[in-house]
């Protein structure tokens, strides 16, 4: 495994389109549920242990060799919000383009052919990690971090939160990120139906509200 490959993949500048998404932070700011660094931290924790854990296990399952199309179906069943399914497939398509340019491989080609309009992003990310020579836990780390870094970055813009404070939130979450990645990699050894399905009701509800806003700063 290559530690540098993990840094390339997890870098916010990796051209996979993630910067356009707030991970549900934009509606939470609008409704006054994220107001400062503390409420941002609580939001990130909730997202990490629900949607983040579920996505991290899906990501870790691909390097374990589970069938990507079955994982894509499992991701659909775990995403009741059509706005979030559309976001996941759009991000999956963008990740696929970046991945085939950086770590090309037959698994990515096969998934791109089977899902030309995009597979769920965690499924693509899992295959990308495998193509880059990364293991299940590295892959899970990558998505766990992305689950919280997206909202933290977005809140800097949405609330003019001090970027030092936002980064401090991420740093304090580091031990929890490690734990979630470890648990997700462990959970990914199971049969596909036993993969985690942790969900967050408000993220699903507000994603639909946000998708209907006529003007918004972030795509999701």
């Amino acid at each position: 495994m290559s530690r540098a490959a993990l840094l390339v993949l997890a870098d916010g500048r990796f051209p996979a389109g993630g910067h356009a998404h707030s991970g549900g932070a934009e509606p939470a700011v609008a409704e006054g549920r994220i107001r400062d660094a503390d409420s941002l931290a609580a939001f990130c924790r909730g997202r990490l242990h629900t949607a983040g854990f579920t996505a991290a296990a899906l990501v870790a399952a691909a390097p374990h060799g589970l069938d990507p199309l079955a994982l894509d179906e499992a991701a659909d069943a775990r995403t009741p919000s059509p706005a979030l399914r559309a976001t996941a497939r759009k991000l999956g398509r963008q990740m696929m383009r970046a991945a085939r340019a950086t770590w090309p491989g037959p698994d990515l080609d096969a998934l791109a052919r089977a899902r030309p309009r995009g597979a769920h992003q965690p499924v693509v990310l899992g295959l990308t990690a495998r193509s880059a020579g990364l293991g299940p836990e590295d892959a899970a780390h990558c998505v766990a971090y992305e689950t919280v870094s997206g909202p933290a970055t977005a809140v800097v813009r949405l609330l003019s939160l001090d970027p030092f404070h936002a980064t401090a939130v991420l740093a304090r979450l580091a031990p929890e990120l490690d734990r979630v990645a470890e648990q997700a990699a462990e959970a990914a050894r199971q049969q596909i139906d036993a993969l985690p399905a942790a969900s967050a009701p408000l993220l699903d509800i507000t994603a639909e509200a946000h998708a209907a806003w006529p003007v918004r700063l972030f795509a999701s």
Binding site: S39, A42, F43, R45, G46, L48, E176, P201, L202, L203
Partner: peptide
């Protein structure tokens, strides 16, 4: 028994 954040702004508020 739930991980932290279950009552926070992303989940139940």
């Amino acid at each position: 028994d739930a991980p932290a954040g279950w009552d926070g702004p992303a989940v139940l508020a």
